[in-house]
């Protein structure tokens, strides 16, 4: 999150609603370690990443949903999931993300 700090503050000052998605756990091979962070604002703009580009598209959809509902939850992407055929890590691992609004 450190590398996103300046941009996040800029977004906050501009009055954007912001959702954070952070990698909290990785099973097997995953491109980004726990702590990797992606931020999405209400206008659909994106900062950072949580994988090598494999799941970011799906994370934007989930993040916009979080902004709408104010929910906080875990989302997992991986080879073992049913949705792996559509969205997953090509490296075969599973990544667990925590999504929340940046309202703290």
């Amino acid at each position: 999150m450190r590398e996103l700090l300046d941009d996040l503050e800029r977004w906050k000052e501009a009055g954007h609603e912001i959702a954070l998605a952070r990698v909290v756990d990785v099973e097997g091979s995953g491109p980004r370690a726990p702590g990797a962070t992606m931020a999405v604002n209400g206008a659909g703009e994106v900062l950072g990443s949580v994988s090598g580009g494999c799941v970011e598209g799906a994370v934007i959809t989930e993040a916009l949903e979080i902004l709408r509902t104010g929910e906080r939850r875990m989302v997992s992407f991986g080879y073992s999931d049913d949705e792996a055929i559509e969205v997953g890590l090509t490296c075969g691992g599973t990544v667990h993300l925590f999504l929340e609004p940046l309202d703290w």
């Binding site: 700090l5 503050e9 906050k12 940046l102 309202d103 703290w104």
Partner: peptide
């Protein structure tokens, strides 16, 4: 709102 993030920054 924003207190923890501001302190983190």
């Amino acid at each position: 709102a924003g207190q923890l993030f501001n302190r983190l920054a």
